[in-house]
């Protein structure tokens, strides 16, 4: 049984603001029957069209989906549209005293519906779930999720593993065919973050660099590989060239290429951006 907080249970058993608003200013719809959850959000603005006077929802989904929808409507009432857009899925989860990580996608659905509603209000077109978040290319076919949507969720929730991305967005949770692509997306997000952050001018000594590489591999990289039943060994460090050998499930795994890339992005992000990682036999 899921370990739901009392607040989740309370909002599931007594959801606030259920229903429709017939003359709503904005309607946002995300999810579908096939996905297993869907949320339709109705917003009514005040006379000055500034603040959200009323918010109602209809949700098809599990306990945490209903509780997240209820929490969302409570959070946005009285806010301006810009203030409402600032709300992150984490705030929805926090409002409920937290959600099991496997259920975080319910909070993401709430935030998506809100964005869809406000986009529709400002752009004047009704956004349906097929149209929201469709910038970029479809990465997860089963749930129709794009790379740009996933990257946004990866950044805002500081996600580091494909499993986390599945828990937050469902991507990769059905056929599993896109999990390698999700790993690449995580690596690319890390890369972009490194690019943005100006590298500190401090010059690493060779000794310090080697220590840092070892510590990142031990503390950041290997625990994540273990969770997939894999592992790696550090074979050698020659300047900025890091040689690793994959072990256990990683050895001979078809996606070891993307795993090597993930290791490289980690080291570039946390040690130095001139590092290159190569996979060797060893």
């Amino acid at each position: 049984m899921w370990d739901y907080t009392d607040k989740v249970k309370e909002h599931f058993l007594n959801p606030r603001n259920v229903g429709e608003i017939s003359n709503a200013d904005a309607v946002g719809e995300v999810g579908s029957l096939a996905c297993g959850d869907a949320l339709k959000l109705f917003l009514k603005l005040d006379e000055n069209k500034e603040r959200i006077a009323e918010a109602k929802f209809q949700t098809f989904g599990c306990g945490s989906a209903i509780a997240s929808s209820s929490a969302l409507t409570e959070l946005i009432k009285g806010k301006t549209l810009d203030e409402a857009l600032e709300i992150t899925n984490q705030e929805i989860a926090d409002f409920l005293g937290g959600l099991p990580e496997e259920k975080m996608h319910c909070s993401v659905m709430g935030q998506e519906a809100l964005e869809a509603a406000i986009t529709q209000y400002r752009g004047g077109t009704i956004a349906t779930h097929e149209e929201t978040g469709q910038e970029g290319n479809i990465l997860c076919k089963c749930f129709g999720l794009t790379d740009s949507f996933l990257k946004k969720i990866i950044v805002t929730n500081k996600l580091r593993t494909a499993e986390q991305v599945t828990h937050f967005t469902k991507a990769g949770g059905a056929c599993g065919g896109c999990i390698d692509k999700i790993k690449v997306a995580i690596a690319e997000v890390l890369e972009e973050q490194v690019m943005e952050k100006q590298k500190s001018p401090e010059k690493l000594t060779n000794l310090r660099k080697m220590q840092l590489i070892q510590s990142v591999l031990e503390n950041e990289v290997r625990p994540q590989l273990w969770s997939d039943g894999g592992d790696l060994d550090l074979i050698d460090i020659d300047g900025s060239r890091v040689q690793i050998a994959f072990r256990k499930a990683c050895a001979g795994c078809g996606s070891s290429g993307s795993t090597a890339r993930f290791v490289e992005q980690k080291l570039r992000g946390l040690v130095s951006d001139d590092i290159s990682v190569e996979e060797v036999e060893g």
Partner: peptide
């Protein structure tokens, strides 16, 4: 309707069943 939500409400009444739902 979604199975987990049904199970949670049944559970409130003391009724134990299971679902074919993903959630």
């Amino acid at each position: 309707v979604e199975g987990e939500a049904i199970l949670l409400l049944l559970s409130e009444k003391g009724i134990c069943a299971s679902s074919g739902s993903a959630c």
